[in-house]
Design a protein around this nucleic acid. Structure first.
Lengths: 210, 210
DNA sequence: GTAGGAGTGTAACAATTGTTACAGATCAGT
DNA sequence: ACTGATCTGTAACAATTGTTACACTCCTAC
């Protein structure tokens, strides 16, 4: 039954009939439960994950365990960085974690080049994926380079709302602090500020966007 | 005579004979003098610049004129962001400035898709370009997210040394401040600090890396 | 030579962000 | 209802970065 979802999704991309068949017969389903890792730094991916359902959170990490949120991968999107990793046979330089229970369709890398040659729609899809990821990285850069933490935090909350489709965010201050690479105390301070400004409401383990 | 340089460069990429011919006959040479813009935000590129000689500095800008250095494009490299811009017919979201007098070979976008289909080496080249740019953006993100300004500044100087092949950097504090999105006074302060640590030597309009 | 401009050095202070420490609140399990 | 763990609020202080102001040097044009 996930195959129906998959077919639907691939048709929505305008993929050719033959391509859809190939993707279905060569790929495999992978279920990821909330909080588990799909990709860890140093991992050597051989498959490209395509998100069927749920959301992946893509983060960048440095040696001493700090990390920073980059963007979400949502339904219908593929992980462009995996593609480059696979093609160049390089190690992954980021991590992806399931924000919710997530369904992935894992596509083997080996066929990529053939498909890019054979199917114009696949070509468009790959380039569009790159474009999208570039844009997201640039937005992440904008936040870090041009915004103060309070704005970044608010933007983070709005993005999360957007990605999840819910006005409620179930995260602790500690978790948020980690994703923005700062400390819990700072986040508590700024959230309280946002609350005073009437932009959010706080509850235990939950933030409501107003 | 630039065509010889171009041919050499394309052969070094392992490009097919036919592809090299096509690139040479359909492209055009563009000379950029030091400090001029190649790409400005909002511009709608129709050609992909391939660097023959010199260096392009790629920066991200925000609405109120702040900017931040992303990476250098050097000989043999193509601007991946232009590719995505062109394919999606989107406006450029960054700017590229010649750091030195620079020679570009401008390749019309119209043929891209055909070449990607027809020439495996071109496919590899395009994907490799994307990979390289992703890596560079991630490095830029690392700097901003995980490093303090003094380290970022030193890394900036080392990168510039690397890109130019010279131990001398001919920039004013003001220019450096602009590229790191901070103020002149801050840069003066930190450069003095680096000088005291024996890592650099300062002269007017010139910084020497030791 | 002199005037004006650009580049640099430095001090004093402000704003932002990070750190430490501790108190109270809430929840799960017993 | 008690205990311990987790989560949040807050104060006090430190470190980093940003801002303003001004002095001084060097260079160029006149």
């Amino acid at each position: 039954m996930e195959k129906e979802k998959l077919t639907e999704l691939l048709e929505a991309q305008g993929f050719e009939k033959g391509l859809i068949d190939e993707i279905i017969t060569t790929g495999r389903l992978k279920k990821i439960s909330k909080g588990s890792n799909v990709i860890t730094p140093g991992m050597n991916a051989k498959e490209i994950p395509l998100v069927l359902e749920g959301t992946l959170k893509v983060m960048r990490q440095d040696k001493d365990g700090s990390e920073i949120f980059l963007y979400y991968l949502e339904g219908g999107e593929a992980c462009a960085m995996s593609i480059t990793c696979c093609l160049e046979n390089k190690k992954s330089e980021f991590s992806a974690v399931a924000e919710e229970d997530t369904l992935l369709w894992m596509i083997p890398m080996t066929l990529m080049d053939k498909w890019v040659e054979k199917y114009p729609a696949f070509r468009r899809f790959i380039f569009k994926s790159y474009q999208k990821r570039f844009d997201e990285l640039l937005l992440a850069i904008d936040s870090m380079a041009f915004m103060k933490l309070d704005q970044r935090l608010y933007k983070y909350l709005l993005d999360k709302k957007q990605a999840s489709g819910s006005f409620e965010i179930n995260k602790t201050h500690e978790q948020i602090a980690r994703e923005l690479n700062t400390s819990r105390v700072v986040i508590s301070r700024l959230l309280k500020q946002l609350e005073n400004e009437g932009k959010i409401e706080q509850h235990r383990n939950k933030i409501e966007i107003l």
